[in-house]
Design a protein around this nucleic acid. Structure first.
Length: 493
RNA sequence: GCCCUCAUCGUCUAGCCAGGUCUAGGACACAGGCCUUUCAAGCCUGGUACAUGGGUUCGAAUCCCGUUGAGGGCACCA
């Protein structure tokens, strides 16, 4: 039997990273089993439909490197793969159930239903349909008047769901509602559409969030009504935020495109997600896995059952590890859009700028947690900086006069340096520090502040080289002026 | 309220199914140290966990039951 799994999102917004984790499991399972991964759009709720959502979903999947064998944009033998294009099928199936006496028409108003539920809640009962239309004679609810079709759920007995991760889960039928299958607008509910589609599309395994467990007996009863074999179930735990609540917007980035914009590498996100609630086990201590390794090792039965908290700390570490493993050429290529987005370089990089960028890459590579960090780390190269306040120009345990002397000597040295390169600059500057009776750190800290405007920066000599002689000297000159001004004002007192 | 699920360091987890090799292993984070022009990266060291009560057993993180806690569900939403 060929494994066929699906991801069936509804286009109601940006896909949530917790859901995407479940997609990763589905995709890895399909690829491991040499099966098929199907993308199906569940757009039966036209009130929540969001225009661009399908494209956002497909872009997100592609960004993470997850391809689909059937679905929008690739077609397949079981289409259409968008539920709004399949409404005739659902209507037909719902009518079949009515004809078989396994479902019935209901024209109760929303107001009456709410009233019924109100009373039930007041009595502490589980709110559910009271079965008013279930017992009316067939034909009393006119087929051509607005109505819904409900499933006639058995009033006794139990429904058992077998889950390959959790074993058998038993539900009492008397607690299961007479579920609406077809809404009054002619669209199917999720329950009908998913059962019909999973059956007709030959889905073999349904892997999804465990928030679906409670409602699965409704669908199992539907399978039974149709006389169809249900798929194999695997309910995976939810992803939570640091506060233990279901992951949501207030926890930070939650949609794929946010992670992309924040400078996370898709391969890092994929790796991280695969390990969120799953592990290869067997004493394995490796954490960084290639896509191929994950496919080869993925074992659905090793999915953890406890909900997992999404740790940005660990993702940041992993993203940094992936960044460090990139070749310089590749990192440069990935960095360019982030520099461009920040307005530091034009999106079409002029050739004369390339040498500078190439110089910067090794300087920042092991300092980046995300690609976007490069902006903050290198902005002093692309934008003019304000001359730092005087106290930053005076070295540790040094006088203003000593610092001024140091700056002047550095100026002279850099103005005359035959090779304006990091490696050629380091020794002379160290010698200068010794000549001035300073520790290297004392001198470099002044220069760092002058040149980068920061206490903390990428390696100093590389930064100086990348900035270039002209700009470096200019900043030194301005610092010199500032110090002179300060010393004069002090003397005046 | 009713129903369902889950429970190992702060977090992700290994170990649990086939009880002893677990004075519970790894990773992230944290603390200290080394390296070092800052910050990183790297290396070394450290602290922190089997929710709780009862069984079963010579022996339980591992099996069973209760309790507690957490999460989810109870729509003409998916």
């Amino acid at each position: 039997m060929t494994v066929r799994v699906r991801f069936a999102p509804s286009p109601t917004g940006h896909p949530h990273i917790g859901n995407i984790r479940t997609v990763v499991f589905n995709w890895l399972f399909a690829r491991h089993q040499h099966g098929q991964f199907i993308l199906r759009i569940e757009d039966t709720d036209r009130t929540r439909y969001v225009e661009d959502a399908i494209r956002v979903i497909t872009d997100g999947l592609r960004w993470l490197g997850m391809d689909w064998d059937e679905g929008p944009e690739v077609s397949g033998d079981y289409g259409p793969y968008v539920q709004s294009a399949r409404t005739a099928i659902y209507r037909e199936k719902a009518e079949e159930l009515v004809a078989m006496g396994k479902a019935y028409r209901c024209d109760c108003t929303p107001e009456r239903l709410e009233q019924v539920r109100e009373v039930q809640r007041a009595r502490g009962e589980t709110p559910m349909y009271d079965g008013y239309c279930r017992n009316r004679p067939i034909g009393e609810v006119a087929p051509d008047k607005p109505h819904v079709i409900r499933l006639k759920v058995p009033r006794d007995g139990v429904t058992v769901m077998h889950d390959i991760l959790r074993g058998d889960i038993t539900f009492e039928n008397r607690l299961i509602d007479d579920q609406v299958l077809l809404k009054s607008d002619g669209y199917p509910t999720y329950h009908l559409a998913v059962v019909v589609d999973d059956h007709m599309m030959g889905i073999t395994h349904v892997m999804r969030g465990d928030d679906w467990i409670s409602s699965e007996p409704k669908r199992l009863l539907l399978y039974a009504a149709f006389g169809w074999e249900p798929p194999i179930y695997a309910h995976v735990p939810l992803v939570l935020g640091m506060d233990g609540k279901k992951l949501g917007k207030r926890h930070g980035a939650v949609s794929i495109d946010e992670f992309r914009r924040q400078g996370y590498l898709p391969e890092a996100v994929f790796n991280f997600l695969a390990l969120l609630g799953w592990s290869p086990g067997a004493g394995e201590e490796q954490e960084i896995f290639t896509r191929e390794e994950l496919i080869a090792r993925f074992d659905i039965t090793r999915i953890n059952l406890a909900p997992a908290v999404f740790s940005y700390d660990k993702l940041n570490w992993m993203n940094g590890a992936y960044i460090r493993a990139l070749s310089r050429e590749e990192l440069l290529e990935r960095l360019i859009p982030f520099w461009a987005d920040a307005g530091m370089i034009p999106p079409d990089v002029p050739v004369e700028l390339l040498p500078t960028l190439k110089l910067l890459v090794p300087l920042v590579q092991e300092r980046l947690k995300t690609l976007r960090d490069v902006v903050e780390l290198t902005d002093f190269i692309f934008t003019d900086i304000a001359t730092p306040p005087v106290e930053k120009l005076i070295g540790n345990q040094m006088t203003a006069e000593q610092s001024l002397e140091a700056i002047r000597r550095v100026q002279a040295l850099l103005a005359e340096a035959p090779h304006f390169e990091a490696t050629a600059l380091e020794m002379p500057l160290r010698q200068l520090a010794a000549e001035l009776g300073l520790k290297a750190g004392q001198l470099f800290s002044i220069v760092r502040n002058v040149v980068t405007g920061k206490e903390v920066s990428p390696p100093l000599f590389g930064s100086i080289e990348a900035l270039g002689r002209e700009k470096t000297l200019k900043r030194l000159e301005r610092a010199e002026e500032a110090l002179v001004g300060y010393i004069t004002s002090q003397q005046g007192k």
